[in-house]
Design a protein around this nucleic acid. Structure first.
Lengths: 212, 212
DNA sequence: GTAAACTGTGAACTTTAGTTATCAGAATTC
DNA sequence: GAATTCTGATAACTAAAGTTCACAGTTTAC
């Protein structure tokens, strides 16, 4: 069951959020300060946290890094009545996944929570990807370069890709592209041209490959 | 010199921004569409891009991933007259580093640009990380687990960490932790306890290590 | 103070990654 | 249709990663 941590010092709003989310099948733990949220997160696992921005004591945004300390994959939504573009930008910079303005409708809340979870899910569930293979595939500069080249073009012939990666020995390059295929980052289309897989594209954009 | 790419289709505003930034010593290239910005970024290097959200054709936000494609460390600021919390959140999710609402004063612009550059600098200074070493360090499940464990706790003794990673042979574990140290992801504090380096924490949160 | 557990080092070994060379069928070119 | 380039398999080799073992100084427990 998906576990939600709610930190909100407005009792009425808190109760109403709990009700909405429990009806949707979430398991909600409600506290009324950022400090309590951090305390609870030391002992229990949560999938997502809803934090009010302004509470007595620490703000929701200040709590984010503490919470992530214990639970790196925690999704975080900041709730606030006084949201401006600046506060929203600041919250996102500090690690929030989304910002909601009070008051909101039940639907909005549910959609936002589910979307944030889905986005985390996407990251967390490498799906068909084997992390060992992916990282060891990325551990070689030729292969990172090949991925970057493929991301730029759409589809390339073996020899063209080889030349763009600047490997003179094509059989050596053949070895590396096979590693990439084995890791599921690269495949060949119907015409035998090399293209990135969806996983490959995902890894590339997500890992922010440095350009060596 | 710091190079700025400006994409803004309001000629007057564009000229005024160019003037403000050039007075501050920036080297500004102005275009009037997202498409042109992408085109220019293929051939020239920029440190930061200021993109209007709404232009004829592609939006500024849509252009972000294309721009980053060529220049992974590009800082991006989105400019818009119609910013709501939702559009700001969306822009940040899609990779913007900041969002500014029109109209803005010269001071605001300069502060925002300089701050965004400073924050990127911080990331880019992770240039002390050797990508080969980092990826090959991450290519082993024991080592990923050690990183995750260290992210959860603050500091651990050798044997405690070893047990948490569930390696029975401590000399084997010793080998792996040395790999992590060599990659700059882990270090020992004054009391010889093992902790994540800043780079290690950065890699961990940024790569969103799958939980095997 | 002594036994036990902790925190390593270094060498020998096994396994995997990466390179190079040779060859061969398929597709293109002329 | 002959020559040439493209694409790839295979084997033999070298380099690097990972494991295991033997040992030793340090700290902690009793």
């Amino acid at each position: 069951m998906t576990r939600v941590l709610l930190a909100e010092d407005d009792i009425e709003l808190s109760e109403s959020i709990v009700e909405i989310l429990e009806l949707e099948g979430f398991d909600v733990t409600a506290v009324n300060s950022a400090e309590d949220a951090i305390e609870v997160s030391l002992h229990e696992h949560f999938d997502i946290a809803l934090l009010d921005l302004l509470m007595s004591g620490m703000t929701g945004v200040e709590a984010i890094s503490n919470l992530r300390h214990n639970q790196p994959f925690l999704a975080v939504i900041i709730i606030t009545a006084y949201a401006t573009v600046d506060t929203a930008v600041d919250a996102m910079k500090k690690g929030a996944d989304s910002v909601m303005t009070k008051p909101f409708k039940a639907d909005e809340l549910i959609v936002t929570v589910k979307r944030s979870l889905a986005e985390k899910q996407l990251l967390e569930s490498r799906g068909d990807l084997d992390a060992d293979l992916v990282y060891s595939a990325l551990a070689n500069p030729y292969r990172r370069k090949a991925l970057r080249v493929l991301a730029g073009q759409k589809a390339l012939k073996f020899m063209d890709l080889c030349r763009l990666v600047e490997i003179d020995d094509h059989t050596k390059f053949n070895f590396h592209i096979r590693q990439l295929k084995k890791a599921g980052l690269v495949m060949q289309n119907a015409n035998k041209l090399y293209i990135l897989t969806n996983s490959g594209r995902f890894v590339l954009t997500n890992h922010n490959l440095s350009s060596d």
